[in-house]
Amino acid sequence: MLAGTYRHYLGSRRATLLAITLCVLVSFWLLGLNPLRLFSGNNLTLTRDFLLSAFQPALDYQKPIEGAEPFLLTVISTTLLTLRFALLAMSVAIPCGALLALLASTAWWPDIRRHKMLGWVLRPLCLSSRIIMAFSRSIHELIWGLLFITAMGLSTDAAIIAVAIPYSGILAKIYSEMFEEHSREAQRALQAIGAGSIVAFLAGLLPRALPDLITYTFYRLECAVRTAAVFGFVGIETIGYRIKLASDEFHYREIWTYLYVLFAMIMVIEWWSRALRKRMET
């Protein structure tokens, strides 16, 4: 995605590093970050307790609860709910993102110097979809969620839409960048033998970009799983919800179980994406 040639010699490499370092120091000062504070009070003991629990994730409730379903069953149903939330959000975001990306990219446009009329239609369409794209992703999914919840209360639809809005924007941005940046040689060759611009896009550019599009979509699914977990904090009973409950009781070992589950989900998605890509490229 970010391939290409880079300036070999930055006007001054040292200046760049210096500027970054300066900004970082100012930030540390603004936030009052003192490294010593990390080791003060009972921070160290708590951290040690928390990290040691990593070696013994819970397989049962740390404190038995009367009449509750077995811990591992809860883990499984929580995992499935998290996955389902991510899938629901993505299945809305992918078509919306793809549509926005097409509207925002010029790769499939006919020559608008020849079709003057079409240009008058396409240009504002492109601009407005770029604005929608930028705006929808500039507000974080949790804030969209918060807005929806304050406006009409929490519901399945509200949660899905809250995630789908910024995700469509991000997917659209990356998709359209991929359309613009992929090599156009096949598309041009097809246009040279009389293909219309849309057909040349579909047959020459889209198949080329497809592996990249799929890889990125899988990365986004990974993010959606994380976001779904976080939405536990606004009340949907995903992994985040369970972590919050366990943390209120200081049940660190239960927390680690859920963290490991999240890790496993991410690993599986990453493995799948890699395996697909390998088979699509060779």
Partner: peptide
């Protein structure tokens, strides 16, 4: 790398605040 990547920032922030207290360090 994979393990740290799989932990969402918000959940990490929540856990770190429960350990370090409401300190900007937790969020950073």
């Amino acid at each position: 790398f994979v393990f740290t990547r799989s932990l969402p920032e918000y959940i990490l922030g929540f856990l770190l605040i429960s350990i370090l207290g409401p300190d900007p360090w937790a969020l950073v």
